[in-house]
Amino acid sequence: MKLSTRYLLNTLGGAYLVAATAIGALLWLLHMLENLEQGLSGSADLLLAGLSALRQLPEGLIDLLPVITVLATAAAMGSLQARNELTILRVSGLSIWRLTGLALIPGLVVSLLALSALQWVTPEIRQSPERLLGASLGESGLWHPSHGLWIRSGNEFLNVQELRLGRIPTGINLYQFAEDGQLQRQIRAGDALVRPDGRWLLEDVRIRDFNASPEAYFERLDSLSWDSFLTARQLELLLLPPASLALSDLWQYVGGLKQRGQDVAEFEMVLWKRLALPLTCLVMVLAAMATAAVPLKSRAVSVRLVGALVLGLGFQMLTELATYLGLLLNWPVMVVALAPPFFLAGLAWWLLARAR
């Protein structure tokens, strides 16, 4: 590896580290302030609030990875240009296309690391059903690794053995008791699909009615709709949000919803935005290099940093706006997820071609 190439990559690596540290510190502070608004009773709660904010950092940094990418690339190129090193590199034979190719390497590496983290790291950081062992359930809920989740409401007891893919209750047993404590009905189901209105669509259902005649004692159904007694807060804690699922689990979950004919737009949008992360980061590098290739009368690095920050945040807002409009107007998910980065890539490529 040439000395100039090694120097450029080291400069870019340092810029990525500084940008990620700065944005990470800001994110941690915002999460910490959000946790402090809930009230603290002592130093132990303050420590727990800090740890909770720290657990939210990886996913937040991944969501803002395009901003980090464009900010780091612009900072590195701006500092090189301020010291006339970028001009020296170009005079030594490194064209703007060669410099752009080298700048794409760190962007590709960090985006692939982010995808790996989304598959194996962030799902583990997210709390599993033990989150239900809080004040939201009071004394009506219990979770045990061997026996699953137990929740009581009045004379009904719900047991869920596990949550497949983080969102599909599996191994369900529902026990309904009379006022005198006698078991009246037991409902078993292989798994359930939780609908947006809170209802559960139980599948592969077996019902035992202990008050019925011997002929009607046992009944087997393909599916059964059950009005769940879980509150909206309990249901929110029980089911992992789509963004916290591993990529493979999210892919399987979307496929399962499509097979059942359910609405998958929200989950599919999250999936494709995650899969498009490497493309988005590479486009951010192209955009930063396009701005670096345009000579400025003022060589102040701050000018390029502000421009890069505006570009990154603007692109992030544009992407979120396109996502909301796509979900509202039922636009094709892949088009909504991939159109913004392709548009920005075309614009950056045109600017680079003009600067050549």
Rank of each mutant, 00 (worst) to 15 (best):
K297M: 10
S302N: 11
E268I: 04
L286R: 02
L279K: 07
A290Q: 09
L286W: 08
L279W: 00
L279G: 08
L305C: 12
L296I: 06
M289D: 11
L277V: 00
L279T: 01
T291R: 08
R304T: 07
A292T: 01
A276G: 07
L271H: 08
S298M: 02
V301H: 07
A292L: 01
F267Y: 12
V270T: 12
E266F: 14
L271S: 02
M289P: 00
E266Q: 15
K273H: 12
T291M: 15
A288D: 11
L279V: 05
L271C: 10
E268P: 07
A293E: 01
G261S: 14
V303D: 04
S302A: 15
K273P: 06
L271E: 11
L275W: 09
A287K: 04
L279Q: 00
V303E: 06
V270K: 10
L296S: 10
M289G: 04
L286Q: 05
E268S: 15
G261H: 13
Q262S: 09
W272M: 09
M269Q: 14
P295W: 11
A265M: 13
F267T: 00
R304Q: 15
P278V: 00
K273E: 15
L275Y: 04
L279D: 03
V303F: 08
L271F: 14
G261L: 14
M289R: 10
P278C: 06
A265E: 15
L305A: 13
R304I: 10
V264S: 10
D263S: 11
L282N: 00
K297N: 07
A276V: 04
G261W: 11
P295K: 06
V301L: 14
V270Y: 04
S302D: 09
A288Y: 09
A287P: 00
V270Q: 15
L275K: 01
L279P: 00
V264M: 05
R274A: 13
L296R: 13
C281T: 00
M284A: 04
L282C: 03
M269K: 08
L277T: 00
L277Y: 02
V303T: 11
K297E: 06
L286D: 05
S302H: 11
F267E: 11
K273L: 14
L277N: 05
A300M: 10
M289V: 03
M289A: 05
A287T: 04
E268C: 06
C281N: 07
V283L: 05
F267S: 09
R299D: 06
M269C: 14
K273T: 05
V270S: 09
L279Y: 03
F267Q: 14
V264K: 07
V283K: 01
V303K: 06
G261M: 07
A288T: 02
P295R: 10
L282M: 09
Q262W: 11
A292E: 01
P295E: 07
L275Q: 02
R304F: 08
V283Q: 03
T291N: 14
T291G: 15
P295N: 12
K273F: 15
V285D: 00
R304Y: 14
M289Y: 10
V264C: 03
L277M: 04
